[in-house]
Each structure stands twice: as C-alpha cells, then as structure tokens.
Amino acid sequence: MFATIELRNPLVAVVLFAFFGSALPFPVWAQNAGPPESTTWNSLKGDVFEQKSIEAANGIVTIDAPKRAEDAAIVPVDLHFKTDAASGRIKAVTLIVDENPSPVAAVFKFGPDAGVTHLATRLRVNAYSYVRAIAETEDGKLHMAETYVKASGGCSAPAMKNTDEALANLGKMKLRVFPAKTMGLASMTRATEMQLMIRHPNNSGLQMDQVTRYYIPAHFIQGLTVSQGNRLIMSMEGGISISEDPNFRFEFDAKPGEDIKVEAADTEGKKFRDEWPLESSGLQESKPRI
C-alpha cells in the first residue's frame, strides 16, 4: 500500500513530478500530446481574410496530408471539394501553412464551369504546423479544413538539382491525362483527371548554395493558368511554399476536342506556355515556349 504524501510546497511538487514523470515510458507522453492551439492562425487570419467570418468545412472541403512528413521539402497535400446545389460552387481555395515564413502557400481560382472536385500538390513545411485549406463558395462564404503536419526545415532544405541543371530545364512542362473508364474522347466529358509538372527550382530565398555558402535568391512560379480552349480551368498565385518542380494533379469537367493550354510566369519575369491535345492517356513532355 502506498502512503499518501501531502505536498505543501508547490516547488517540491514540480520537482517530484519532473522526476517521477520522466520515468514514465515516452509513448505515454506522446500519445497524450495532441496538436497545439492555433495561436499563429488567430493572429494571421485577419491579415489574410480581414474581418470575414470563416465557417467549419462541413464536408465542402477536405484536406489530407501525412501526420509526419518523410521529406519536409515535398509534403503531399490532397484537397477534395463538394460541389452540389446545396453547398454551391467553390470559386477559390487558399492554402496556408501557419508556421512558414510566408504562410500563404497559394491561392487557386476555378473557372465557373470547370467543375474541379480534386486538387493535389506538394508543399514545403518549415516547422510543425497546421496546414489549412479555406474554400470560398459563390455566395462569398469561407469554409476551412485543417490538418496538423509534423515536419521541419522544408523552406531551407537544399535544392534537389544543381543550379546549372535547373536553369537548363527551366520551364519545361509535362502533362499527363489519366485514362477514362471508357476509352475515346467522347467519354471524357466528366471528371477528367490530369497531372501537370513544371521544371522550376522554386527557390525560397532561405536555401544556401552548398558551394559558395551564400543564400540563393528567391525565384519561383508566381502565376499559373490552366485552360481548355477559351475556358478557364484554374489559376494559381503561388509563393515560396510550393515545392521545387511544381506538381499539380486535378480533376475537372473536360470537353472533348479542345486543347489544354498552360501559361506560367516566375518572379524574374520569365513566361512559359504550352498546349496539348486532350487524349485519354499518355505522358507528354514539352520544351518551354518562352
């Protein structure tokens, strides 16, 4: 039987708790520790959305990301959108990484009849952080989904390619159209899935050149437009949190017989564009048209 000890001195209680508490197996502490409070977000949201009210997602937008990232420089993030009559069309979504030096990773806007229901990309995460997706519906309401990601150092991680190689391939694009359930363009009138890859270092300004030991200036894709014919599918305003060699996978309502066009611009004023015929499958690579 254990004796009951009354601790009248708070300092003694703290010391004893630290001593005996440290003897507990580490997993007990880890299992009981949940994500921290959103203190950064509370001070950040007014700067991004002013005084607009932000509601819970309620299934209108969902976000998936690994709880512990394997590589903080390329953290996969998946967004899904519900676009029924009750919730209304989603016209824009803002991706935010609370603890990044530049928290707003990207703002995506969707065409009025694009029917985008899924969007995936890769982000840099600089410290343990909430990652948020704030969707704006046609009625102007904001709906937020969030997840907590354990990763650190993503914004300062060295580039995967050396400078010469990155510049030699700057702006090259690959477009992949995933096969429809029924082959042929006639079947590709709903929910076509596509993946766009752009060769670009997307330097954050926080990375160090491993040879010179100087910081590499920020240089990233800041504007992107994807369209089919004259119809906007989506546009993006990006920042330093989008990973090297930006990669976007999205699902939208396609129209048969119209080409896919992509235009991009980076922070040094370079512009890249290309277009591809809409096909049911295949991986097509282009040289940038600058």
Rank of each mutant, 00 (worst) to 15 (best):
Y215M: 12
L224W: 03
E165A: 14
Y215F: 09
C155G: 05
A218I: 05
Q195C: 08
D209E: 06
V177R: 00
A168M: 15
D209A: 01
L167W: 15
Q207Y: 04
R176E: 12
R190I: 07
C155T: 06
T163S: 15
D164L: 13
M197D: 08
Y214A: 12
R213P: 01
P217G: 04
D164A: 14
M194P: 04
Q207K: 07
R213N: 14
V211Y: 14
Q222G: 11
K181M: 11
I198M: 03
Q207A: 04
A186W: 13
G171R: 00
N162H: 12
Q222S: 15
L170E: 02
M160V: 11
Y215G: 02
Y214S: 10
P179M: 01
R176M: 08
G184Y: 08
T212I: 06
A180F: 03
L167P: 11
F220P: 06
M188E: 01
T163D: 15
M208Y: 14
L167A: 13
K181W: 11
N162A: 09
P201V: 12
A159Q: 04
H219F: 15
C155I: 10
L185A: 08
G171T: 01
H200F: 02
L206C: 09
G154L: 02
A191H: 04
C155M: 13
G153I: 01
Y214I: 10
T163F: 14
M188N: 00
P158I: 00
Q210N: 09
N203V: 04
M208C: 05
S187C: 02
K161M: 13
F220A: 03
T212K: 10
F178S: 08
